[in-house]
Structure formats: structure tokens, C-alpha cells
């Protein structure tokens, strides 16, 4: 057990160190969501108010968008970390990990936790910047947002790791990313409410883990949402444990062939 925790810790340490080294990535990952908030949020808020009618009990678009953009940044940061599995394969570090006398479950969990930590830190930074743009959000909800960010991050880092372990090229990962990330993002209620989507889209949104993260954060920050907070958190707990387990299962079977 002690060994397991030590392995988790050292792999976490490695991901954090790497993140801190990539300064341009850090800045880019913060600036992009802020631009979304400013250009998309402010630009769109006028239209949204007339469209949404009574649906969102008169909340403005910007406060509505803040939890969406925060979760978007957590989602992107987490999912894209899967590409580092491919990097590690390409640059050989994967072999160093595979030949080490440690539990593979521990190495992959440490890695997922490390990448989750960086995504969550990013999310917190964006949330604090966003709260300046939309002062009406309820800051007392931050602990709940934090919990849902962590669960969303764990789900999608694990999901990224699963795909990264199966892919052999960066291009392949990018292709999958293109096919998956847009639908996941747009069918999560991050930019527009799930209730007003066409039925088939709503059906997909309901099996999308990000939907529950966005919803939980929105309830915590603005008081409005689709599901109950408890239901959201339970769904997130279920999906994150499923994805973490699958990623461990996949990584246990990883070879260098």
C-alpha cells in the first residue's frame, strides 16, 4: 500500500513538473477560455436573453456561460493529456515506466491525478478571472465546483489515456480528438441549455459525462440547472470510476509491440 501511494505520488510529481515547464502551454490554456468568455459570452448575451425566454429564470448569458467555459477548459486540458501517453511512447519514457517494478495501476492513477490537478488548477484560474467578468455568480458554490471539476478531470484524463494507449501516432489522436471533443463540448450544455436542444441531441447530452459537470457547476454558481446537484455528483462519481478502471485495465495490458 505504501509502495502504491509512493508510485502514485511520483508519477503525479512528474506530470506537475512537466506542466510547470511548459509555460507557453499554461498561458495558452488560460487565455483561450477567457477569450471565449469575452468574445462569445459578451457578444452573444443580447441574443440569448431574447431567446431563452423563461427557461433560465432571467439569468444573464455571461453567468450562464461561466460554468460552461470553466468546465470546457477542464475538459480540454484533461482530454488532451492523453496525447502525452503517445509522446511518452514516441520518446521512450513509456518503456522506463513499463519496466519499473511497480504496480501499473499506481503509475496510471498517478498520471491521471497529475494531469487532473493541472486541469483543475487551470479551471480555478479561469473561474477567478471569470468571476470578475460576471460578478453575479455565487462564490459560495466554489467547493461544489471544485468537486465536480476534479471528477470531470479524472473522467477525461482517464478517457484520454485510454485513447492515447491505443493510438500509435499524434495524428491519430488528433483525429479522434476532432471527432469527439466538439460533440462532447457542444452536447454538454456548456454554451446553451440542454432543455432547448432537439430530442436526439438531448438524448446524447444525457450520456455525456461533461453535461453533469457543467450542470453541477451551474447549479452551484447560479442556482439554476437541469438535474439535482446530488444526481449530478453521483453521475460524475460513476463515470469517473468507470473511466479510471478502464484506463488501468488498458494500461496493465500495454506492451511496447
Amino acid at each position: 500500500m505504501k509502495r502504491f501511494i509512493r508510485t502514485v505520488h511520483i508519477m503525479w510529481y512528474r506530470q506537475i513538473k512537466r506542466f510547470l515547464r511548459a509555460k507557453s502551454r499554461v498561458i495558452g490554456s488560460i487565455v483561450q477560455p477567457i477569450f471565449w468568455l469575452i468574445f462569445f459570452g459578451l457578444g452573444f448575451s443580447g441574443t440569448f436573453r431574447t431567446m431563452s425566454g423563461g427557461m433560465n429564470r432571467n439569468i444573464d448569458y455571461l453567468p450562464f456561460l461561466v460554468p460552461g467555459v470553466v468546465m470546457m477548459s477542464v475538459f480540454f486540458g484533461s482530454f488532451m493529456s492523453g496525447i502525452s501517453v503517445i509522446w511518452d511512447r514516441e520518446f521512450g519514457f513509456l518503456k522506463e515506466v513499463l519496466v519499473a517494478p511497480v504496480s501499473r495501476d499506481a503509475t496510471i492513477l498517478g498520471r491521471a491525478l497529475g494531469d487532473s490537478t493541472t486541469s483543475v488548477i487551470r479551471g480555478i484560474l479561469i473561474l477567478s478571472l471569470a468571476s470578475a467578468l460576471a460578478p453575479s455568480i455565487n462564490l459560495a458554490g466554489i467547493p461544489v465546483v471544485l468537486v465536480s471539476m476534479i471528477l470531470v478531470a479524472l473522467s477525461f484524463t482517464s478517457f484520454g489515456i485510454i485513447i492515447g494507449s491505443k493510438m500509435r501516432s499524434m495524428e491519430g489522436f488528433q483525429l479522434i480528438n476532432t471527432f469527439l471533443s466538439m460533440p462532447i463540448l457542444f452536447l454538454s450544455g456548456a454554451f446553451y441549455p440542454v432543455q432547448t436542444m432537439p430530442t436526439w441531441m438531448r438524448a446524447i447530452a444525457m450520456i455525456n459525462p461533461l453535461t453533469y459537470g457543467v450542470d453541477a457547476a451551474r447549479i452551484a454558481l447560479t442556482g439554476t440547472g437541469v438535474n439535482s446537484l446530488i444526481a449530478d455528483i453521483i453521475m460524475l462519481l460513476v463515470t469517473s470510476s468507470i473511466f479510471v478502471s478502464i484506463s488501468a485495465w488498458v494500461f496493465r495490458r500495454t506492451t511496447i509491440e
Binding site: 512528474r14 513538473k17 512537466r18 515547464r21 511548459a22 520518446f91 521512450g92 519514457f93 513509456l94 518503456k95 522506463e96 519496466v99
Partner: peptide, 12 residues
């Protein structure tokens, strides 16, 4: 093991 190709983390 010292592998034929480097297996270092080059960012660290």
C-alpha cells in the same frame, strides 16, 4: 535496463 533509444523525460 539501458535501452537502445533514450527513454528519458526530455522536459525534465
Amino acid at each position: 535496463v539501458v535501452f537502445q533509444d533514450p527513454t528519458l523525460d526530455r522536459r525534465l
